[in-house]
Computed example of a mutant assay.
Amino acid sequence: MDYISLSASDTFGPDEAFFLSRAELDTRRPPRLHTQDFHEMLWVQNGAVRLHTPTGKQDLSEGDLLFISPNQPHGLQGRGEASMVVSLAIRPGVINAIGNRHDDLSGVAFWGRGLEVAHRDIRQLAALNQAALQLERSPRRKLFLEAFLLPLLVALDRPPEGLSTDAPDWLIAACNAAQNPDVFRDGAAGFVASTGRAHPHVSRTMRRFLGNTPSDYVNAQRMEYAARRLTGTSDPLAEIAADCGLPNLSHFHKLFLATHGETPQRYRRARQRELVQPRP
Rank of each mutant, 00 (worst) to 15 (best):
L105K: 03
W43Q: 01
I95M: 10
A220C: 00
L20T: 12
A226W: 05
Q36C: 06
L115W: 08
E239R: 12
P280L: 15
K254W: 06
N71F: 10
L105N: 01
R32L: 13
A270C: 04
E274V: 04
L143K: 14
H199K: 12
A177F: 03
L60R: 02
F184G: 05
R50E: 14
S7K: 14
N46C: 10
R113C: 00
P70N: 12
L237P: 04
V117S: 04
L255W: 12
T165L: 05
I95Q: 02
H74T: 04
A118I: 02
Q221W: 00
P200T: 08
A173I: 01
Q124H: 11
R91W: 04
G232A: 00
N96R: 10
L257G: 01
L150V: 09
F252L: 10
F191N: 02
A109D: 02
P200L: 02
T233E: 11
Q130N: 07
G112D: 03
R141S: 12
R79W: 05
P280R: 11
R137H: 14
G56C: 04
R137N: 09
S164L: 01
R266S: 11
A132T: 12
L60S: 06
K142Q: 15
S5M: 09
L135N: 03
Q221H: 11
D15W: 12
G211C: 07
F252N: 11
L135R: 01
A193K: 14
L133Y: 00
G162D: 10
L275M: 10
I98F: 04
P236W: 03
S203M: 11
T11H: 07
T259C: 11
E224W: 06
K57R: 13
